[in-house]
Design a protein around this nucleic acid. Structure first.
Length: 427
RNA sequence: GUGAGUGUAGCUCAAUUGGUUAGAGCACUGGGUUGUGGUCCCAGGGGUUGAGGGUUCAAGUCCCUUCACUCACCCCA
C-alpha cells in the first residue's frame, strides 16, 4: 500500500516552482519599495489567538481549524495541555508578535509582510486547498487614509509587475465603532421585517452577524435585501471623510475600483476600508487578494489601542492566473557535455565539476550512450550549447563546441578550456 | 458538512448487445551502414482496467461496497 499525501495537501512540483519564485520575488521587490519589512512567525499558535481575533462565529473558527491538544509538559502521563491550532490566516499571528515584542514602544508605525502556508479544513476544489499559501502585509500604527491608499497602491503595483491586468478592485467601508452599531440596528430591523424570506443560514446568524445576509447568494435573500439600507449611506462623518480621502487618492493615482456596499469580509475584526481583488478566470474561488482596516484588533489581543490595515493574497490563485497567460520558457543547462569513450568521460567529469563551481549550469551523462542519444537528450533538456569530447578530440587536444540554436560548431583547445568556456559566458 | 461527475500505460483517450492475448497517439528507450539534436522511418519497454466483493461459461463493460480525484454549494485568499 503506497502512502499518499493527505486530502487538500499537495506538492508543488519542480515544474511549477519557477512560477512561485517569480511571485515571491516580485512581492519582495514591491514590498521593499513601499518600506515593508519581512516578519517570520510560527505556523502553530494557541487556539485562543484565532478564536478571539477572527471571531467565534465565523466558519473558520467554528469548523475549519486544525486544532489539537499539546502534551502537558508538567505531567508525566501525557495529559492534555494547551490547545494549539495550525494558523488559518496570518494577521492574528503578526499582530500577536507585534504586541509580544512591544514594537510599538520604539515606534508604533510598522509595516510588515509575511509569506507562507495556512491551513483550513474545507472541502478542496479549484483554487481551494487545505494547506494553501498566502502572501500578506500589515501596516500597524497608522489610522490615516493615506496608509489605506498606500496599501491599495502597493497591491495595484504588484499585479501590474506580474503582468496581471484583469483582476478588478472592489471597495467598501464597514464604518467604525460609532456608526456600525447604528447601521447594524437599522439593517437588523429591516431584516427582521422580512425574516421569513431569508434562507436558514442567514436566519441562524441574523443576530450575531446580520451583515452577512447582504452577501448571501440565495435568490430569496438577494430578493429580500434588494432595498436594504446601504452601509455607505450610514457612515458617520469621520468614516465618510476617511473613505472619501481613500477614494480621492485612488482616483488621483489612476487606480480603478468599483464600490460594493454589499461586500462583507469574512473575518470579524475588519472596520472602515475593506477591499477585494477578484478575477473572472478562476471559477468560483474568485478572490485573489483581500483585506481591510482592523483598528480594534491590536487592543483586542492585549496591546494598546493601535490601528492597522492589511491584506492577504492567495499564492495558488496567483500562480494559476500566471500559468494561464504564460508560455513557460524553461531554460535548460548552459552547457551539455557529450562524451564518447571512457577516457573522454573521465576527462570531462572534473571539468564539469570545475565549471559548476563557477556557477555555470552544466550537465553530463554518467552511463555510456550513443552520440545521437546524448544529442537528443541535450536537445530535450533545452541545452544552450554542447561540448563534444571523444577519444579523437583528446588525441588532437581540441574539443567541439556546438551552439544548439545556430547549429554552428567550432573547435576549442583543451588547454585552458575551463577559462575559455567561462569567459564566453555561455548561457 | 451537502450535491454531482470521473477513475483503463507517464499523459490524452479507444475497446460492438458482456466474448480471444485490453489498443492508439504523444512521451520514453534503442536503431536508421563505425561520432551529431529538433522533422521523418523502424523496433522495443511499459497495465493487478483505483481497490475489494458479487452475478456469469465469460466482466474494463452489469450489481454492491470502498477509496481517490474533480467541479459546484458553502466559505474564502
Amino acid at each position: 500500500m503506497k502512502i499518499t499525501s493527505i486530502k487538500g495537501f499537495s506538492d508543488i512540483l519542480p515544474e511549477e516552482v519557477g512560477t512561485w519564485q517569480q511571485v515571491e520575488a516580485v512581492a519582495r521587490r514591491v514590498f521593499t519599495a513601499y518600506n515593508f519589512a519581512e516578519i517570520r512567525i510560527p505556523i502553530v499558535e494557541k487556539t485562543e489567538l484565532f478564536s478571539r481575533s477572527i471571531g467565534e462565529t465565523t466558519d473558520i473558527v467554528e469548523k475549519e481549524m486544525y486544532t489539537f491538544a499539546d502534551r502537558d509538559s508538567r505531567s508525566a502521563d501525557h495529559a492534555e495541555g494547551t490547545k494549539l491550532t495550525l494558523r488559518p490566516e496570518g494577521t492574528a499571528g503578526v499582530v500577536r508578535a507585534y504586541v509580544e515584542a512591544e514594537m510599538y514602544k520604539v515606534e508604533p508605525a510598522r509595516k510588515l509582510y509575511y509569506m507562507g502556508p495556512m491551513f483550513r479544513r474545507e472541502r478542496p476544489q479549484k483554487g481551494r486547498m487545505r494547506q494553501f499559501h498566502q502572501i500578506g502585509a500589515e501596516a500597524l500604527g497608522r489610522g490615516d487614509p493615506f496608509i489605506d491608499a498606500e496599501v491599495l497602491l502597493l497591491l495595484n503595483d504588484f499585479f501590474e509587475s506580474l503582468g496581471l491586468t484583469e483582476p478588478t478592485l472592489q471597495l467598501n467601508s464597514l464604518g467604525d465603532a460609532e456608526c456600525r452599531p447604528q447601521y447594524r440596528e437599522k439593517l437588523l430591523a429591516f431584516l427582521k421585517a422580512r425574516e421569513e424570506s431569508l434562507c436558514a443560514n442567514c436566519r441562524r446568524r441574523i443576530d450575531r452577524n446580520p451583515l452577512r445576509a447582504l452577501d448571501c447568494k440565495e435568490s430569496g435573500c438577494i430578493e429580500a435585501t434588494k432595498d436594504a439600507p446601504s452601509i455607505l449611506e450610514s457612515l458617520c462623518v469621520n468614516c465618510r471623510d476617511h473613505f472619501g480621502t481613500v477614494q480621492r487618492l485612488l482616483r488621483e493615482t489612476n487606480v480603478k475600483y468599483t464600490l460594493n456596499p454589499r461586500m462583507v469580509r469574512g473575518l470579524d475584526y475588519y472596520c472602515r476600508t475593506t477591499f477585494e481583488w477578484t478575477t473572472a478566470q478562476l471559477g468560483s474561488q474568485s478572490a485573489i487578494a483581500a483585506g481591510g482596516r482592523y483598528d480594534g484588533l491590536v487592543e483586542q489581543l492585549g496591546g494598546p489601542a493601535i490601528p492597522g490595515v492589511g491584506f492577504a493574497m492567495g499564492v495558488e490563485r496567483l500562480t494559476m492566473l500566471l500559468k494561464m497567460q504564460e508560455s513557460a520558457a524553461n531554460t535548460g543547462p548552459s552547457l551539455y557535455v557529450v562524451w564518447v569513450g571512457e577516457q573522454a568521460r573521465d576527462w570531462a567529469f572534473p571539468l564539469v565539476h570545475r565549471l559548476r563551481k563557477n556557477n555555470l549550469n552544466v550537465e553530463m551523462e554518467g552511463e555510456a550512450r550513443s552520440l545521437k542519444s546524448q544529442m537528443r537528450r541535450a536537445d530535450k533538456f533545452n541545452a544552450v550549447s554542447v561540448l563534444i569530447v571523444g577519444d579523437d578530440e583528446l588525441a588532437k587536444g581540441k574539443a567541439l563546441l556546438r551552439d544548439m540554436t545556430s547549429k554552428r560548431q567550432e573547435e576549442i583547445g583543451l588547454d585552458g578550456i575551463e577559462a575559455e568556456l567561462l569567459a564566453r559566458k555561455i548561457g
